[in-house]
Write a protein that binds this DNA or RNA. Structure first.
Lengths: 212, 212, 212, 212
DNA sequence: AATGAATGAGACTTCATTCAT
DNA sequence: GATGAATGAAGTCTCATTCAT
């Protein structure tokens, strides 16, 4: 069985944003068109993360991206659309590699492992939340996040079902909550909280509960 | 045994904010001055929660609070100061009551119960993130949150110890993560996610693990 | 013959302003009414001189004068009226003493002497011009200045007539121009210009022309 | 002998400002950019002169210049910067032509003649004082003015020396004082004072004293 | 005589967006 | 494709003035 796990690791909200900022927004850049779009998106991403959506002006995006303001509106219908496209790109981005045909428990282990790795780069998280929370009341943003959430939740649910969980939905939701809760606390109290410890603790519990 | 539980309910980040918004910002309202300030703060709070700080205009605050725009600047030096004063009030607010001398498991039950109640008012949560992640305030706010976190984490840790947990620190941290993770997801996917279900699920696990 | 010379010394624009700032605006202060008015005028004067009319707010006048903003409008119909009353006070202020029954040449000598004295206090002049020029396009201010100018010009003209000048009007106007021109240049180039020297030079010319 | 008289006419403070306002602020106006900047500066100058800096609104500048309010802020960072740029232009402006190799007396005649012409346009003078006496600019402006003063004073002093004056420094200073004094009085009492008369009177005196 | 809370018109400024070239 | 000058609606904030007490 071949699960679409290659992309799974980026399911949850925060983790997605990590990737957002560590990679280039768009890898295709053959035509001039794509080069320009990429320049705009890359620049906007850094600025949105740094100063927030509202405080970033199209003027600054144009200046830093070394394109004219007019060109931005040639490719994007509005500033809002830059944000939307940015978020869509994030979730379409390829993720890390997951062992093919892994056992469910192994799958979760790998997931938490890569999550812990991501957590170590704290500055990345901050950038992510900055973008995320400053736009939480934008309906467009909320919808994307919600859809992605539902989509990936079902994958995790299946894994717990394969593990033999009696309430795979609940297990899936709880794990997602733990991950994002840990990420959130890392931002505020990372120095005293040691977030990775909780992930291990949770994993240990799964092993005891679902292991051989 | 008398635990300082009266304030416990406000431990975690988001829950704090719930209280902020569910109560009146300022209780003294004898003089005209205080009545006006209260009207402005109360109105601003709801609007910030609803639309975010940036999208709320002073014009709208004035209109909804039924005061003139000038009066806002008579009491607050800027829109930013309204936000600052709001945050200060949050952390000065007193908390609710916890059953005195409750059993540890009962204590956690009550905690999750009041948390679930808070979660129902979704718009309230929004103010928290909106306020928290404004770039410029972040460091100051982060410190306050961190201190609160550490302080209340120790209380929860003690409860798990009383329950007979072999790793009370981990249990405490995990529970806090679950709570804030649930809160976070409620914002984005509350309609499909049913956050309260996860809380029950977790509680059931505690009962099985620590119950009689 | 008794000329109204006691007041003459304050004829020209700048010299008037010197007195304005070196003396209290109003000497009567028996009743509470007069005390309050005096406090307001005195405070406004310093502030207008320091920051200019526009940049001085009624709020600041009230605060520094230790009266309420309402009281200012109880005694003055507008901020503009404070300025007008201030300028009127300046021109009504008593001046220095002039030797009674002095010879015309002696009269001019004394005039220039007291003018030179006033010039020494450079900061005073700056304050004067600050108030004066910042309000030059206010018609009310211009009218007061103009009337005073005409009034005192006629006194000086008479003195030159007594001296035997063939064109006393021209002599009077020229002398007034020299005085204010000297004052003006003192502000900008006082350190290199030595304004008092010009006054002596002019006086020497009068002595040669009109003297015995 | 070739005196650097070409620029002499702008020696004294006020006269400088006349030129400022009688000429276009910026001569280059090829590109659209320069045309717009010129429109804004020219309009602002007239308005500042007429109503003073504070009473001139950006709205009015935009309306009279027939550009949008936004365009003003596209080229100038603030209303204050318009003022600053205006002052800079003043001192960069080239001056009029003086008859080459003129006799000293002729030179002074021409000087006073062009000065009298300048005086006729009263509104022009106002911008000078309005601009000059804004508190915040004073020190910077004062220095520029002082340097110009010293520089051109020396030219006038030489002319009086050539005329055979026994005290050319004093004559030079006195003449400069008369000119600026006359200008000053023109503003306040121009309608009754007839400033040009004094200039003729002074010139007549020079003719009698230094003429053939 | 005195207070100070309250008002509202209008100021400066910002910035997403358009459009002629 | 690309530019950048131009727009104008909307925002924050100021402050002279009023008015109930």
């Amino acid at each position: 069985m071949r699960l679409p796990v290659g992309r799974f690791a980026y399911t949850h909200l925060f983790f997605y944003f990590y990737l957002l900022t560590s990679q280039s927004v768009c890898d295709m850049q053959n035509t001039e068109r794509e080069i320009s779009i990429k320049k705009i998106l890359d620049t906007a991403l850094v600025l949105f993360a740094d100063k927030g959506f509202n405080r970033t002006t199209t003027d600054e995006i144009a200046r830093k991206a070394r394109v004219s303001k007019g060109l931005i509106y040639f490719y994007f219908s509005s500033k809002e659309e830059i944000l939307t496209r940015l978020i869509e790109h994030i979730f379409d981005e390829g993720g890390g590699e997951m062992a093919d045909g892994a056992e469910p428990l192994e799958f979760i282990e790998q997931l938490l492992e890569s999550f812990r790795t991501a957590l170590k780069d704290m500055t990345r998280w901050k950038v992510a939340t900055s973008v995320l929370f400053q736009n939480q009341n934008r309906e467009a943003v909320r919808l994307i996040l919600k859809n992605k959430y539902v989509q990936y939740y079902s994958i995790l649910k299946d894994q717990f079902a394969l593990l033999g969980s009696s309430e795979p939905e609940m297990d899936a939701k709880e794990l997602l909550a733990i991950m994002d809760g840990v990420a959130l606390h890392s931002i505020f109290a990372g120095d005293v909280f040691k977030p990775e410890a909780v992930l291990d603790f949770t994993l240990k519990r799964y092993r005891k509960q679902f292991g051989p």
